[in-house]
């Protein structure tokens, strides 16, 4: 079973050490993604989603960022122990990333074809002509006419630019793709097009994917596994079915209560009270307890541990520990 996992994150802790204190961005997360599977990483601003992604690629800006502990096993090897030179080969080659803002992710003075070709040349031993051939193929794959390879980024619209970014990310046939809010900057109709394309390509190429988003709707339509992050921890983790139909963690419940629904008429939303905690000064015990409606005295004292409440459905909440199944 274990060797089926393409990537396995064990107890990852990443902190930013600043003059004003330690920002605990990621606090001991465990994740695994199988070959060809897609995982949705959901959470609000400041939950540590992007830091998790950057930790996998070891791109956390250092200083102030530091990966304190943990293992990231990729194809049986720990990425955190690899020399930088090998990491560089892996980045963009076997593992690649799509960033949130397509407007700034492209170099404005190079043609889009050249930008794709450059990545291809960096990771493969090919000639200039071959790399350009590949660039044209990639553009066609993401639904842009091949002739447009000679155009510059400013000649493309936002949605088209994001397609180019995706083409760059997929140019070297990566095994693992990290997409950090790939559609947040786009309009809904364009978002739908881009998401559908990402899903299709991911299935066609058999790439594993980690999709970072704050939109539960996007997750429902593109992912098989879901991990909900809060204050640097994964509070609930399971299949789409587990998270959406057997919602267990109070925070996940709160998230669903906060979204206005399109099919049901609700007069009042049930938001989560309070604010995101400051990651440089997290609450004691369970970091969600000050906002949790089920919190008891115990929650402020003890840190919950991962509890598997049904096969593959893991919840980090005291309510479920010691076989309590959500009852106190």
């Amino acid at each position: 079973m274990a060797n089926e996992n393409l990537i396995e994150i064990k107890n990852l802790v990443t902190h930013y050490i600043t003059d004003d204190g330690v920002v605990e961005a990621v606090n001991g997360i465990n994740l695994s993604i199988k070959k060809g599977e897609s995982l949705g990483l959901v959470g609000e601003t400041g939950a540590g989603k992007t830091t998790t992604a950057l930790s996998i690629l070891r791109l956390v800006p250092d200083p102030p960022g530091k990966i304190i502990s943990g293992e990231i096993i990729y194809n049986g090897e720990d990425l955190l122990k690899k020399p930088i030179k090998e990491m560089r080969k892996i980045r963009g080659g076997q593992i690649s990333m799509i960033f949130q803002d397509p407007m700034t992710a492209l170099n404005p003075i190079l043609t889009v074809g050249e930008q794709i070709a450059e990545v291809v040349r960096q990771h493969n031993d090919v000639t200039r002509a071959e790399s350009h051939q590949r660039a044209v193929e990639m553009l066609e794959m993401v639904g842009i006419q091949g002739e447009r390879a000679h155009e510059y980024p400013h000649q493309f619209s936002g949605g088209m630019k994001q397609r180019v970014v995706i083409a760059i990310a997929l140019a070297c046939n990566p095994h693992f793709l990290i997409a950090d809010e790939p559609t947040t900057a786009l309009d809904v109709t364009i978002q739908a097009q881009v998401l559908e394309m990402i899903s299709e390509l991911q299935k066609k190429l058999g790439t594993s994917m980690m999709l970072i988003t704050h939109d539960l709707g996007v997750v429902a339509e593109t992912c098989e596994q879901v991990a909900v992050m809060y204050a640097g921890e994964i509070v609930e983790y399971g299949t789409l079915e587990h998270i959406f139909n057997h919602t267990s963690h109070p925070y996940t419940e709160g998230l669903f209560g906060s979204i206005p629904s399109l099919d049901k008429s609700v007069t009042r939303l049930k938001p989560i009270k309070g604010l995101m905690p400051d990651p440089s000064n997290l609450p004691s015990g369970c970091s969600f307890h000050p906002r949790c409606e089920y919190a008891t005295d115990l929650c402020a004292e003890r840190c919950p541990v991962d509890t598997e409440i049904e096969p593959g459905h893991i919840v980090r909440c005291l309510k479920f520990e010691d076989g309590r199944h959500g009852e106190w």
Binding site: M276, D278, P283, P290, D297, A300
Partner: peptide
Amino acid sequence: MAKDKKKNAAAQD
């Protein structure tokens, strides 16, 4: 616990 909560509230505010 009340004390704890207070401290946390002050920290994030």
